[in-house]
Amino acid sequence: MFFGFDEDQIAVKEAVGALLDKRAGLTVLQQAWSDPAGPAAWAVWPDLADMGVQGLLAPESAGGSDLGWVTMTLVLSEAGRVALPLPLAETAAIGVPLLVSAGDPAGVLGSLVAGRAVVTVASGIGEADSGERPRAPAASRADWFVLGDRLYGRDDVVLRPVASVDATRDLAEVEALGEGLVVGSPLEFGALAAAAVLVGLGRALVSTTVDYVKDRHQFGVPVGSFQAVKHQLADAAMHVEFAAPAVWAAAWEMDQRGGDVGNIGEVARSVSLAKALASDAAERAARTALQCHGAMGYTDDYHLHLWLKRVWCLSPAFGSARWHRRRVGVDMGLHG
């Protein structure tokens, strides 16, 4: 039993974190808000590929490193920390492993790993109105679209841009024209990847808010000295820190299955655990962050909203907390 990370895993996480801080910092994020498909937002994509990020789950034969899901989720939590406005989870943690297990039917793995092509994915869960079409982020830049268990090329889909609360999402409704290629369901990969990003978002929300309340003075003292503020932040931190190990454990289990989609059902409970805890924790962190910032958090002039809105997008993506609890409940025989 050893529930920690090895040196290589930590080194990859730190290297990617440093790259993101340098090349995908706040200015880039703000540029992505007004132009999500533009060159500023995407500048870090080839750098990530040079560092091997898109190939973390690809075999060496496809130019990848096969480092696995534990490393992948650590990296995705870094992407969440900076609210990276790019489909890294969709490409590296969903598209790549789906194609690997499907035997790369379209012959695109190499270009994904090299950072020359982009996959996006429609999560497609929990539609209240089943007449709605699936939606996918990064729609203007994606070369490949995963809808249901199939992969479509850009020429085989019709896109209709729709506004997301998070403008960096570059969201569009996607309608498939052809048959596509069967690659398998993105659900388990997508839920685990989103959970990892949510842990990063949640940690960032707690730490930026801690910084803010130490700095902001009212009644002659830092507002962070008030218990009502402290206790909310302690709770938010607790929920995020209790979600994180569930994400790493699900990633470890995924690695034990060798990413084989055929066996993925066995890890479904662990994935649901991770996603439900991470969604709830990140939503709590977002609420707390906003409340503790006061009106400063309630303006799009200030950057906090970028993290809040990303949480609102990813918390329901690939199954909300409630959806995943229900899935486990069905497995336990508690639902019809």
Binding site: V210, K214, S225, H231
Partner: peptide, 12 residues
């Protein structure tokens, strides 16, 4: 919560 806020998060 006081302890966590002060010693883990570093709040005043």
């Amino acid at each position: 919560r006081n302890i966590a806020a002060e010693r883990l998060l570093g709040l005043p």
